[in-house]
Write a protein that binds this DNA or RNA. Structure first.
Length: 262
DNA sequence: AAGTCAGACAACCGCGGTGTC
DNA sequence: TGACACCGCGGTTGTCTGACT
């Protein structure tokens, strides 16, 4: 005897999410936290597969997501990490706070790939294109750094100087302005989040999860444990700006005492 | 103004690893 | 211990949107 199926596939809705569905999902997650995704659709009143809910949350609705195109630094980091890790998008995404594997994958396929080809670099091997025609061996470290040097030359001076191959905790400069990456206002997100905040200022992100699921939120363990991103009013304001919380600005940020909730 | 096309990105599919019964 | 479901990941497809004719 295995488990129950995650959802009744016959009664599952597919396709783009509506604002109403988003609102329900956000409300549910903020109220109950991320528990087992299987039960989320049922409890949240959604006719979606749990898998679909998880994807929607992690790729689009998560409050810590940056929106807009990757900036130069992030792009460089992706290129470097890709050279080392290959198509391990989730691993790459782990080094870019606020970015999802899906987002990075899409950006790679639509922007970076072409950029590299244009520069004569094989996006798969990260070697010069003419060379990869004759050799399909994995790039060695020297070649890799030579190619990165070429990339740096293509960058504006300040970016090139700033760039260096990532270390364990490189690049995760949370203070890097998200506005510079061109966060666009999304009216539907604006509505969903503002309503959610107004409806439930006691959003219980820590929720009932006993399995430490919040790693998916993309914070370091120390950040997760303290949820400093929420407790820090400045961060709240930043988040609210990033997500276009128009109505939220009407609320006195300092009055949001959520300390007990975490 | 309408039609077509290409680019961008959201969402789905299928697989592998892991956990549960 | 085997069967099956869950979860996460990477690849692929579908849909939307803006540019162009």
């Amino acid at each position: 005897m295995g488990r129950q199926p995650c959802c009744d596939k016959l009664d599952v809705k597919k396709g783009p999410w509506t604002a109403d569905e988003d609102r329900k999902l956000v409300n549910f997650i903020l109220t109950h936290g991320q528990c087992c995704w299987r039960s989320v659709p049922k409890l949240a009143g959604l006719r979606r597969c749990g898998k679909s809910c998880r994807l929607r949350w992690t790729n689009y609705l998560r409050p810590d997501l940056k929106r807009g195109l990757l900036n130069e630094d992030e792009e460089q980091l992706v290129i470097d990490l890709h050279a080392r890790l290959g198509n391990r998008w989730s691993k790459i995404a782990a080094s870019l706070p606020g970015r999802t594997d899906n987002e990075i994958k899409n950006h790679w396929n639509t922007h970076i790939k072409k950029k590299l080809v244009k520069m004569g670099i094989d996006p798969v091997t990260h070697e010069p294109l003419h060379k990869s025609d004759t050799s399909h061996e994995a790039p060695n470290e020297d070649d890799h750094h030579r190619n990165l040097d070429v990339l740096r030359l293509e960058l504006p001076k300040d970016c090139a100087a700033e760039f260096s191959p990532p270390t364990e905790n490189s690049s995760t400069d949370e203070s890097r302005s998200t506005s510079e990456s061109g966060n666009e206002e999304d009216p539907s997100m604006n509505l969903i989040w503002s309503e959610t905040f107004l409806n439930d200022l006691s959003w219980n992100i820590s929720g009932p999860d006993s399995r430490g699921e919040y790693g998916e939120l993309g914070f370091s363990s120390s950040e997760e444990s303290s949820f400093s991103w929420l407790l820090d009013n400045r961060n709240i304001v930043d988040n609210h700006r990033n997500f276009g919380f128009g109505e939220f600005s009407e609320i006195d940020i300092n009055s949001l005492d959520m300390g007990d909730k975490f």
